[in-house]
């Protein structure tokens, strides 16, 4: 234990003097600022509608549906002025009445016809509603339980927990090993009773501690005490640990950062791909789910926003445990048989 503590303290000092703790702190402050100051919802409308009908029935209807006054107009002059300033928007002028509705579209830039047609369909639906001829509600079946749309400012937290701090850990653990290779301090380490086991665990613990130090303030500011911290931190720790072990394994086979760069960045990019699926859930090709960070980010999301329990995320925990085991074995073999023999 004395040996492990000595190694951990040394790694902690080196991480500090390499700027890792500073960078993590800056990143944390930036993320906290986003959580605190980003709006909970961001509504972006690509259309502006002018209602010239008698009694402005469409404008009233849309306002009642929650559409803002920056989208719906009843004054033609104001509408024209605003549209002129925002040429990328689609202008829609409604005239006539409910029986004979007339829509005119004003398009200044290239807008896909698909978008125009979807807008037309929405307007037709509004007219049918106003006539009282609305069709039956389209049935919706939720495959993973009904989940409320997360507030925008909190939606970024799973990304920060699963991808950002892991990215830092993955990068910096390699940097630390390359420094040791360059300084040949590994030769000195090799003629001590230190061994591969302590070497791996010390660096792994360092990045686990950093991931908690980064994640915990974010969670506290974003969610207070309303979430299952044990479960969420377990997921974060296992994800950080897995990536540190993979990073240690890969770095053994390279002499310096320049040689490592392309392979390291490729691994990081692949690991980050599931963030696309997180942002656009309908984009989830089968191969994407094979990337370990995919189940991790969705498990974190489910715990944070869907009150998922231990049982719900157990498959992900088991998967991460297995991947940590494989990662440790690979890192141990590479360090014991290669790094500490040639170091």
């Amino acid at each position: 234990m004395k040996r492990f503590i000595s190694m951990f303290m040394q790694d902690l000092i080196l991480a500090n003097r390499n700027g890792l703790i500073l960078v993590t702190g800056i990143l944390l402050i930036a993320m906290l600022a986003l959580v605190l100051f980003l709006p909970k919802q961001l509504k972006i409308h690509n259309e502006m509608i002018l209602d010239l009908s008698q009694g402005t029935i469409l404008a009233t209807y849309l306002n009642n549906q929650g559409v803002g006054e920056d989208v719906v107009f009843i004054e033609e002059q104001e509408f024209n002025q605003k549209l002129e300033k925002q040429p990328n928007k689609v202008g829609v002028i409604f005239s006539g009445d409910l029986e004979n509705p007339v829509f005119a579209f004003l398009i200044n830039s290239q807008i896909p016809m698909e978008n125009i047609n979807l807008l037309k369909a929405s307007l037709d639906r509004a007219i049918l509603d106003l006539r009282g001829e609305s069709t039956a509600t389209i049935p919706v079946r939720f495959l993973r339980g009904v989940m409320q749309t997360p507030p925008l400012n909190l939606k970024i937290i799973p990304i920060a927990l699963v991808f950002e701090v892991v990215l830092l850990g993955f990068f910096f653990v390699s940097v630390m090993m390359f420094q040791e290779k360059q300084e040949a301090t590994l030769r000195a380490y090799r003629v001590t009773p230190g061994g591969a086991w302590n070497y791996i665990l010390s660096k792994n613990l360092l990045f686990i501690v950093l991931s908690i130090a980064y994640g915990l303030p974010l969670l506290l500011v974003g969610f207070g005490l309303s979430i299952n911290y044990g479960l969420i931190l377990l997921l974060v720790v296992m994800t950080a640990s897995m990536m540190t072990l993979i990073s240690l394994f890969i770095a053994v086979f390279f002499r310096n950062l320049s040689e490592w760069f392309f392979v390291g960045v490729a691994v990081l990019v692949i690991n980050s791909l599931p963030s696309i699926s997180y942002g656009i859930p309908s984009f989830s090709p089968a191969w994407m789910s094979w990337i370990p960070s995919y189940p991790a980010v969705f498990a974190v999301r489910d715990v944070l926003f869907n009150a998922a329990t231990w049982v719900d995320v157990l498959p992900t925990i088991v998967l991460l445990l297995v991947l940590n085991g494989i990662g440790f074995l690979l890192a141990y073999l590479a360090i014991q048989r290669k790094l500490l023999k040639e170091g």
């Binding site: 080196l14 003097r17 420094q179 300084e183 301090t185 000195a188």
Partner: peptide
């Protein structure tokens, strides 16, 4: 060792 291999940042 002949080549002084120490941790430069320590």
């Amino acid at each position: 060792f002949e080549h002084p291999n120490v941790y430069g940042r320590l």
